[in-house]
Design a protein around this nucleic acid. Structure first.
Lengths: 154, 154
DNA sequence: CTCAATCAAATTGTTTACAATTAAATTGAA
DNA sequence: TTCAATTTAATTGTAAACAATTTGATTGAG
């Protein structure tokens, strides 16, 4: 085996991947959320939908998808479940019947108050100091904003 | 609404979450891998299993699970598919019949050579400079190593 | 105006991910 | 030595995630 071949194999080491720790830590943190969200009747994906709506009520499925990087194939069944739970209301927009508008119910609005404990509980499990938190946040948003959409047409 | 209530709601802003950009960028990068891996007959999860085996052949399902933070419920069906594809071989350990040992076939070993193009193609899509790459890598491994297992019993 | 192109949501089918349970092998304390 | 506890894989059932397609509404070029 030539030297340059040996060196190339470095790029296949698990420890040299960026995507792997991204994928693994994402799943690990979602697993951390799961038991905390369970008493609220929320899964992690339902939770981020609620976060988006608490921040900005009355969004279309498309708006939610753009914010959360999810498509209607994921959102539609999930939103139907949130509707059954009485947290949101789904209604076709009269102005443009292509759009389905999502609105919080009273119950959905009220849940925001109770949800305040969630970030506290999760934050207590992460050993990152504020600078590390901030830097990680910055780098991840760099990936979300620049890297992929611009250069690789996703 | 009291002032302190208003300030607490900050913690529920999507943009103040760490988990959300982690989750979103992880999925975004996996979507980036998908078309690159497709010609090799690999999905992202199959790919990281192959990475682990290229690095260290002859691992048990448990070993793989520990390395990749995956359980047998995910790995067993996936390994069966890799076996059907002729990339690996599954065999119960004679020493301890609880363990199923995973070994690369000739074809699985040979694929390593072709896979060398994968990190190049993916790397070209990420706008991170080497320092940012390194720092992101460090912070993610910090999450994987310390934060969760130690403090929150996962 | 009109109809082809576009757009949004829903649907269908496949792959992951994981909790919970089961089955079989191994270990170790009494 | 023996059997209860532990360990490993596999299985079962559920929820996500997403590609591809379908349906229906809207837009805009000619």
């Amino acid at each position: 085996m030539k030297k340059e071949d040996f060196e190339n194999y470095e790029s296949l080491l698990l420890d040299n991947q960026l995507c792997f720790p991204l994928y693994a830590s994402s799943r690990l943190i979602i697993r951390l959320y799961t038991p905390i969200l369970e008493p609220f009747g929320l899964t992690y994906t339902k939770y981020i939908v609620m976060l988006a709506l608490w921040e900005n009520d009355h969004l279309s499925v498309k708006d939610l998808g753009d914010k959360l990087f999810l498509d209607s194939g994921t959102l539609t069944p999930l939103l139907k479940k949130l509707e059954v739970q009485g947290l949101i209301h789904r209604e076709r927009s009269p102005e443009d019947e292509r759009n389905v508008m999502i609105t919080l119910t009273k119950k959905g609005q009220a849940l925001k108050e109770e949800a305040l404990v969630i970030p506290q509980k999760v934050g207590a499990c992460l050993n990152l100091n504020p600078e590390e938190f901030k830097e990680l946040h910055r780098l991840l948003h760099l990936i979300l904003k620049d890297s992929i959409k611009t250069k690789c047409g996703i």
